[in-house]
Design a binder for these strands. Structure first.
Lengths: 213, 213, 213, 213
DNA sequence: GATGAATGAGTATTCATTCAT
DNA sequence: TATGAATGAATACTCATTCAT
């Protein structure tokens, strides 16, 4: 019995060790991807920075694109979860569907401003494909699920909207695409300056989906 | 003098020859970029398809990214010029600023639908950077200039708009980003189905920039 | 004493377990060697197919070539032992030395036809070196020993033969070499078609070793 | 015109240069294959020994097995052509079909004895597959063609033979297989000692194919 | 004995770029 | 101008072997 316990303790340690290795690899990869770009990052680079042997990389990921996808899903998931959690925390002040969406958008943009590397990485990848397919891969840690939040907001809304899926798609595409240009290249202006117009444009999009009574 | 004449005659032919070679190279590069992707296309590939020696490539372009940029400017320029020309041809029927912008957007989307390879290539490259910097490099063949068209339309409008530059930026980002997903992956739906909502969203954006009287 | 008994009991089970593991490893190796070839078979492959950890492989064999040699000796031994047993079973009908050798050759060829993977594996390895050195390593399970059979047949023969060792060598080389080509590639024809000529050729070889009176 | 001549001279040199490079590569590969074995020879090894850059290898051969096949065809071709030429040179003294075949076999065995590396390389590859497929790839330099020689010898023979193709197959398999063991490992004896018995065995095989009148 | 995570040397192959012709 | 042979750095991926548990 003691042996069994020891084994369990051991395998617990091994398990922890593996998790640490994976974390080291993903962290190293993220740093390199955002600084040098994916193309110029080699597996040797990632392994070296993670202080791990080259072969070890292949115990955790099948290739560069495997780790990239893992990162995309994780980073994108974190962004959405964080925004959802923030809204849940002060649900009282935001009433209408429009206000809720704008709150979420604003929060996501703020996250982008705070950590521009995440925009560089997700760049033009934070789009519908990821949202739809990879997001589910990352479980909401705190029980707040972005998609459920959106559906609930729609259900609670007095105003009816056509094609809510398409509306969400267009908003996400606009935010990610505009953020890339504004945050990374200040084109056509800084995100600080762009944000009000961007949020108003989102409001414009939302209104264009209202069912007129 | 005879020598000079000979040279001129030669250089005339040579000039033509050079243009043909450059055209062959860009055409080959476009085909390969859109079918295999830029990363998997080598200079040897391009030269082979253009029926030109590998060394010759370097007489016309400095590297793969040089020819890519040349292509982006050219292809994007052609799209905008074509749209501008189309609007000029039937300027009578479209009156308001909103209508003009929607006409241009609709025309560009139709061009994308007709030739999806161009969306794949420009994809997420048809962004503000290109629009602002590279577009000018391509002269409007028929004297119709997209930027001038936009400025004129603004000037002729009864309605006043805040930050017209930002408005145009957001519209272009939305169109190119949404086209990529819809046309290439039918996500979240086909472009046929998306187009009405997309145009209405653009209208929503435009209205959000109106100066309320 | 109790401890000793326990140990014995354990080592009995352990002994069985070890044999099963070794059997699993050799069986897995044979399958892989004959399907993918030795070069493309890794120790990881063998361990995985044997459902054993990679490190365990090294408890039984020193490397890939060690297990290959073990397999060659075993498989070749089995072939010769089976042929010998078959001849012993119907010794009455085959009288002369020539007939005995041809019976053995025929039986071995039939075994090859029945299981072509064995030809692929032994192929050009079933040569004199193995025959002479490794075969002894495999004990004849049923007390029938090929080499003894051969010596006895010679002793009982009315006809005298020069260099019986060389004669046997040439026959074995011819059979294994021809079988490889005919059975695996049907070159120059199927083994069915080749067999009569092959057996007659063996007869020709045997006669060329006869001491003329 | 002078330019054209110069170009021709140049391209002649270039052509020569290429031939020299290919020769250097094949020669280096042969040395390494026979000393270290094919498996332990890397393309880097071959290139280094040929005093050529690694990449250059791939301008001439697609991979290790490509150059191996090229070598097999060439070396095997040379062996057969040399034997054929030798027989043609003293056709007078050898009369019967049997004598002709034995002369060729003896000559080939002597070549093997003289250059054992060639046996190590062709080893068990100098078999029917090569003979039938690769031999034709190498043109007989001096107009003496082994296969024609064989056919002519059959036609001129007073004795008739069944299945001459199969007969030739069995002889080639026996010679190459026995040479490998005898020359490289002196098993079961040196080739000097084996040769008489081997030739007599071949005679025995030939006789087993005679059509009895 | 058994495990399987970790290692890092080894290898094939690609490809941008140069340069003699 | 045009060519294409040559280069060799760069890179992805494999795998035998070890060793702490």
């Amino acid at each position: 019995m003691e042996i069994d316990l020891a084994k369990k303790r051991n395998s617990g340690k091994a398990e922890q060790n593996k998790k640490a290795k994976k974390e080291a690899l993903t962290s190293a990869a993220f740093d390199l991807f955002t600084s040098k770009g994916i193309n110029k990052t080699s597996i040797a680079d990632i392994a070296e920075r993670a202080k791990v042997a080259k072969g070890t990389f292949y115990l955790y990921f099948s290739d560069k694109y495997d780790i990239r996808n893992f990162l995309i899903a994780n980073k994108a998931g974190a962004i959405f979860h964080k925004a959802s959690a923030a809204m849940n925390a002060r649900t009282s002040s935001v009433k209408t569907f429009e206000d809720k969406i704008l709150f979420l958008a604003s929060n996501i943009i703020d996250q982008f401003i705070e950590d521009p590397t995440i925009v560089r990485f997700l760049s033009k990848n934070l789009s519908w494909g990821i949202f739809k397919h990879d997001l589910n891969a990352v479980p909401a840690e705190n029980g707040v699920d972005f998609r459920k939040l959106y559906t609930d907001a729609l259900a609670q809304s007095d105003v009816q909207y056509r094609e809510p899926e398409v509306m969400l798609f267009l908003i996400i595409e606009l935010v990610s695409s505009a953020s890339y240009s504004a945050i990374l290249f200040r084109e056509p202006c800084s995100m600080q300056d762009l944000k009000p117009s961007l949020l108003e444009s989102i409001r414009g999009i939302i209104r264009s989906f209202q069912n007129c009574p």
